[in-house]
């Protein structure tokens, strides 16, 4: 059975070498940096295979996520799975950050 990531050999459109190319944004660089740090020899908290397993677990949503948002999902789930933080800590943090960032977005 093919997973959502398993494109090899399937029909697809033409390759446009210029389209979609952009300089990485600071946000993308930060996600990239986090993944590289977790991969590194000092931390060894993640491997490429593990990151892929998490991205592929997105199922059909795999196709909907931009590249670095997929990476981010993988990091968040992997760190949870490895017990770096608990589900409760994760949810508490997200609620707090949502309030903090959301206030800037929608006004007080």
């Amino acid at each position: 059975m093919r997973g959502p990531q398993d494109y090899g050999g399937l029909p697809a459109g033409p390759v446009d070498p210029e389209k979609h190319e952009h300089d990485p944004t600071h946000w993308e660089k930060t996600v990239d940096a986090m993944m590289m740090l977790l991969f590194d020899q000092r931390r060894r908290l993640a491997r490429v295979d593990e990151s892929r397993r998490m991205q592929e677990a997105l199922g059909e949503d795999y196709h909907k996520y931009p590249y670095y948002e997929r990476w981010l999902q993988a990091i968040s789930w992997l760190m949870l799975e490895k017990g770096v933080y608990t589900q409760e800590e994760f949810e508490t943090k997200q609620a707090e950050v949502r309030t903090r960032l959301g206030a800037g977005e929608d006004g007080p």
């Binding site: 930060t30 997200q94 950050v97 960032l101």
Partner: peptide, 9 residues
Amino acid sequence: ILETSVREL
């Protein structure tokens, strides 16, 4: 929100 949360944790 997700990126900030994960990074801060």
